[in-house]
Amino acid sequence: MIVEAIVFYMFSTILLLSGIMVISARNPVHSVLFLILGFFNAAGLFVLLGAEFLAMILVIVYVGAVAVLFLFVVMMLNVDMSRMRDNLKKNMTVAAVVGFVLLGELVWIFSNWHFSEDAELNVQTPFSAEDAMDNTRALGEVMYTDYMLFFQMAGLVLLVAMIGAITLTLRHRPGVKRQKINEQVNRQVKDVLRVEQVESGSGIV
């Protein structure tokens, strides 16, 4: 038990610290690296909760794909963080007031936290512990049955995101030469070759 607690506090502390570092690091590349660190720690928290599938997904998708993409983008764009920081300073007072009040209120909520009497009843446990089913399988069982609608809608959201990304970025530049295999294969001699009878003394117009 004590080990678990120690691990929990370790992950949590590093997560919070790396979160702070994400927004305070001078170098944007460092920010992204701290973000990755944060993801790892969050994954660790998931493992502690027994949600190993989510932990793996977090590592694979967020660290493996999203964060790496971020890294590329940040490196290519060469964001000037110091200028952004100046803006930040300008609004620091308001932001601080709003932020601290919000923080205080959230702390207050959690200190007053209690569960509804029905909460236990409401939280459905579709799988009994005896099944000893692992996370991945359990999610698969409900994902394509009970939560079919959400799964499909998430698919729609992704489709829309894809259409949107293409709409906003795809450009048909005129004058760019592309290989058109179909045309190349179907090219006939008569299309490209012209035989002219040239009279002597005159050129070809």
């Binding site: 609004n91 709003v98 009040v101 919000l102």
Partner: peptide, 11 residues
């Protein structure tokens, strides 16, 4: 900020 301030005010 305005949005967050709104939330804070309501809470």
């Amino acid at each position: 900020y305005t949005m967050l301030a709104g939330v804070v005010i309501f809470i």
